[in-house]
Design a protein around this nucleic acid. Sequence first.
DNA 1: CTTTTTTCCTATTTTACCACAAGGAAAATA
DNA 2: TATTTTCCTTGTGGTAAAATAGGAAAAAAG
Lengths: 131, 131
Amino acid sequence: MMISTKGRYALRFLVDVAANQGEGFVPLKDTARRQGISEKYLEIVVKELARGGLLEAQRGKGGGYRLARPPEEYRVRDILERMEGPLVPVACLEPGRAACPRKDACRTLPLWQGLDRVISDYLDRFTLADL
Amino acid sequence: MMISTKGRYALRFLVDVAANQGEGFVPLKDTARRQGISEKYLEIVVKELARGGLLEAQRGKGGGYRLARPPEEYRVRDILERMEGPLVPVACLEPGRAACPRKDACRTLPLWQGLDRVISDYLDRFTLADL
DNA sequence: CTTTTTTCCTATTTTACCACAAGGAAAATA
DNA sequence: TATTTTCCTTGTGGTAAAATAGGAAAAAAG
């Protein structure tokens, strides 16, 4: 599996907030109920989004979350990478990794590079506004 | 990560066998050495390929493995799915799974279906002969 | 028939991550 | 001051990845 609940919930949360924020803030509790996601677990996910500057938070009564920017500025790939780490399909393509000693002779490397490319390109074509 | 060492090793093993089988069998030990893979672990991977009919095995001296068919009849996707299970990017697309109750309202489902499509299409374009 | 080479089989281990659950502290509003 | 919300820490049960260990069974060569 490439995308865990962390990434999927993050996306669903953002879409829900985008759809339900008028001028104010959307409390996590409401989204959790609407989306049928465990409140406590969603907290973990959302906190990560807030730390990444994707969400603005407001505590206390009338508080909650809202998008930090307009929906069309959220690339799906950025959201997912924040939660999942790099979305490479195989370990040998991970950034910041010592180059594989067989990289020049490896018959399969080009295959993985192509796959990585295809996935990245696809996910770059979508923003929150498209959902 | 989408593809684990199981899938990657399987592919490398098959490529190595294809390249090194003349008329006879290629012993696992040799491939393990050439590819720098743990012999014992590679056994597990290869046994799965043999059970799936992708390889023919011969025990004893002069034995080893060879391809059951010509290289161009091995689709990369089939090889990987044998080792990894279904290659879907998210759990909700797993075959034989109860349909998600929100599937009609889900804003993100089409995104995942498209991603799944893109990945499958890419991996269907390659066979062992291409590597 | 014995030795060597190879695949075949079962079990165990280590490590890491996933998907939560629990309980409260701190802030903000009414 | 009471209530609502986010924030923070900690624990937990399950599952999978990536091996490792130790031998049994077959096949060929001597």
